[in-house]
């Protein structure tokens, strides 16, 4: 069982995930854009357009303009998700000792890592709940929601909850996860951590990655394509004095 879930599946999943994602992006890139679709006011230079894109991706400016409540839920969710993902990468790679770079002791670093991780996890859960409740409770939102809109939220909720469960109730040390992932990455797989919470967490993540290229989650990549269409800088033909 753990051979299948721990050794074979991860490789298949990562190939399907990356392959599917790149394929979708190439498909977009291959379709021409016959007309300039800039929506004004627009930036005047490419640098300005990039700055615009950054403000939008980091600050969710469009949502802020129209709907502060949705902005809060969506922003909280996305920012804490980003923190959690970065935290996983750094925390697991350095076994929680990364704050030693800034002069803390090993113990302080591990503690800090746990505290930040816990708060980010709580923020993530909160963001998810806000989005889920919003979707389920408003008649307008229910009208425009498909099964997959709920499914994606529930899937991420499951991932976040199993993660938090590990943090609070089933301590899986960074180092064990680290050796397992390192084994996978160097193509010398070792047995996955012997912990059912970890296996649930890890399997749900894989399901999400499998679904990613075929779902609305692709907005994470598509956003840059679609926003570029309307923020493309436009030079005035006539420069007025």
């Amino acid at each position: 069982m753990s051979v299948l879930f721990g050794w074979v599946l991860p490789y298949i999943v990562i190939i399907l995930f990356l392959g599917g994602m790149i394929h979708r992006m190439l498909m977009w890139a291959h379709v021409p854009v016959p007309f300039k679709l800039t929506v004004f006011p627009s930036p005047k230079t490419t640098g300005g357009a990039v700055a615009d894109l950054v403000k939008e991706t980091v600050g969710f400016r469009s949502l802020w303009r129209g709907n502060k409540g949705l902005w809060f839920g969506a922003w909280l969710f996305h920012i804490s998700l980003a923190m959690v993902i970065i935290g996983h990468a750094v925390g697991i790679y350095y076994s929680g000792h990364h704050f030693m770079m800034f002069g803390s002791t090993a113990e302080q670093s591990e503690h800090l890592s746990v505290v930040i991780g816990t708060y980010a996890g709580i923020a993530l859960l909160l963001g998810l709940l806000i989005l889920l409740i919003r979707r389920a409770s408003s008649p307008q939102l229910r009208f425009i929601s498909n099964f997959s809109d709920y499914l994606v939220l529930l899937l991420i909720l499951g991932i976040a909850m199993s993660g938090m469960y590990m943090r609070w109730f089933a301590d899986v040390p960074y180092s064990v996860v680290r050796s397992y992932l390192a084994g996978l990455l160097t193509l010398r797989p070792i047995a996955p951590p012997d912990n059912s919470a970890f296996m649930v967490h890890f399997t749900l993540v894989q399901l999400l990655l499998l679904y990613f290229p075929y779902s609305k989650l692709m907005h994470a990549c598509g956003l840059f394509f679609s926003r570029w269409l309307i923020t493309r800088p436009h030079e005035r033909q006539v420069i007025l004095k």
Partner: peptide, 24 residues
């Protein structure tokens, strides 16, 4: 149309049904 209008294809793909547009 999906072959020559990138906007159309993208817009059909990337909407997350967030509803931010509804009241606008």
């Amino acid at each position: 149309m999906l072959k020559y209008k990138r906007s159309l294809k993208l817009y059909l793909d990337v909407c997350t049904h967030c509803g931010a547009c509804a009241e606008q």
